[in-house]
Design a protein around this nucleic acid. Sequence first.
DNA 1: ATTGACTTGGCAACCGGTTGCATGATAGTT
DNA 2: AACTATCATGCAACCGGTTGCCAAGTCAAT
Lengths: 331, 331
Amino acid sequence: MNWTGGKRPTISQVAAQAGVARSTVSRAFSQPERLTRETVARVLEVAKQLGYTPNPVAQALSTGRSRNIALVVPDVANPFFPPLIRAAQRKAEDYDLCVFLGDSDEKPEREDQLLERFASQVDGVVLVSSRLSDTQIWAYAQRMPLVLINRDIDNMLRVLIDSAPGMEDAVTHLAELGHRHLAYVSGPATSWSNAQRRTAFRNAARRQGLEVSSISANRSTYESGRKSAERVVASGATACVAFDDLLAQGILAGLADLAVAVPEQISVVGCDDVLGSTTSPALTTISNHCVAAGEVAISLLVDNFGGSPAVDVRHVLKTHLVIRNSTAARK
Amino acid sequence: MNWTGGKRPTISQVAAQAGVARSTVSRAFSQPERLTRETVARVLEVAKQLGYTPNPVAQALSTGRSRNIALVVPDVANPFFPPLIRAAQRKAEDYDLCVFLGDSDEKPEREDQLLERFASQVDGVVLVSSRLSDTQIWAYAQRMPLVLINRDIDNMLRVLIDSAPGMEDAVTHLAELGHRHLAYVSGPATSWSNAQRRTAFRNAARRQGLEVSSISANRSTYESGRKSAERVVASGATACVAFDDLLAQGILAGLADLAVAVPEQISVVGCDDVLGSTTSPALTTISNHCVAAGEVAISLLVDNFGGSPAVDVRHVLKTHLVIRNSTAARK
DNA sequence: ATTGACTTGGCAACCGGTTGCATGATAGTT
DNA sequence: AACTATCATGCAACCGGTTGCCAAGTCAAT
């Protein structure tokens, strides 16, 4: 005995048992108002008794809607994503949608493969911090509803986390503490967020008349941050802002290795606020509502089911600075 | 213009264009060896030209296999799960399977809902640290291939992380450092892993002739750990082992708040090894191969597609202690 | 030339639903 | 009583594939 072709009752069996046509059973579930109260009751009774549930695959085939969506992220293990994934998943449930998860491992080719595989069996896709080119994304958006998180392309649905306000706060905060030379430790080169944050950082620093250094850590990992610590010290900056919390956490560790005291000798600011107070010292960071991002993306997607491609929606989420213990007055 | 009923070419169009029957097109993809080289070539040529790809939904309906599986976890945001999810996802890709992700938020009802929703559209399910009752799980296992991670039920497919060896190492390690009184800080009451770890801890401690205290933190969160620190101190133990790294990290922070030095005054051991060296001090912890668990689970699932229910497989993964800086000789 | 084995590809039924249209019954109108 | 609206339900085609079975064609052996 095996499962395939198992004992799930079909609509025909319910129809036979209830003495009605298959279409009537179908309607008893989807448009009960078109049937007599009694008929509906009888059908549902039989259905329950038989343990019948409409087969979603068959429904998908005949209606063209699967009630499934896909969520693609560059790296599930990066702490920025889990809260977002979780929020999106929960929100999707509210709309009775199941969500496929794809991890592209930061590689455009993999992301492409995943999307290709998902394309024909979902009602829509949410792409988080996509590493694909604008053209590729555009092409997919022609085939199905698609929402971007942290990627800004015209005439598409996107939710963006605007680092500028938080970055402005951070730089001002550091300037007020007396720092005159700041460093920005950047993350993945292909990341829209990284470009956006770096720009916001530079603009804010220029306005405050501060000297800036730029250090590239490439990957957004703890180890990569740790290795960058040395360069932060070498740059001569007395405070730094990292692309994200993971990198900042690594920098904290790297500085500790070098016996550089934080925040006494160097102040460190993170970005994302996904680590809470779990670092030591507790990290001052730019908080972005990643939970909100996930929820908004799903809502946006659902609102655009059946709509037309090339709709221009730009939902921007603000950020703000959360001050903890990794920043202090310049010695 | 919208997406539904879009311009995806169907098998009929390809057939017409290539001047063959639909069945021939189907076979050109699924059993090319039954056709002439030329026929296959011609069909594929036309298919490529039209941009045709078999519709997975239709395939699923007629074959009864969707090539989709589901992975259900209690909490995506708990750092133990992302690496596992990632590994599982990657492995699934090797078998050309798409994976649905479900987050039960540690609630049995939600887990049940998710499974019900997934049941009819996947070829199998992996349940990680399930909070359902044995009976419920058993019932689902009758309906579809199902693999358990960290849950031990007879006659089912399961991969277990055996904490005993690592726990043995940990307790021995602490005993050798001179600790005579240890505390275990437990996690979720309904967790199989928790019961298993606590038992292993007690047995090891008894063998070493050590005094033990048990402290309950309930939820496995940083905050919960932080709040437990006080009770660890109150217990009089000079070293503690926490249910998992997250809890341990919280305890570290809580102890720091209380100005108790780690490892000088109290030693702390975690479990899972998912935080690497990111804690301060770097956490001594019991390493379990969560990546391997994810991979093995998928392989097990795939191997049992089309098999029969009630197969008894118990794949046990060993653990070992990773010594870092949160443990030291008793003062 | 006849026969039989084997290969190739078409026919048509099937997977399990949905839905436009038709039908017959019931109720309401004059 | 005849005539039409209205409503509940059934019929049958359709979604886009897969697959068991059969017919026609090829080729070699008798």
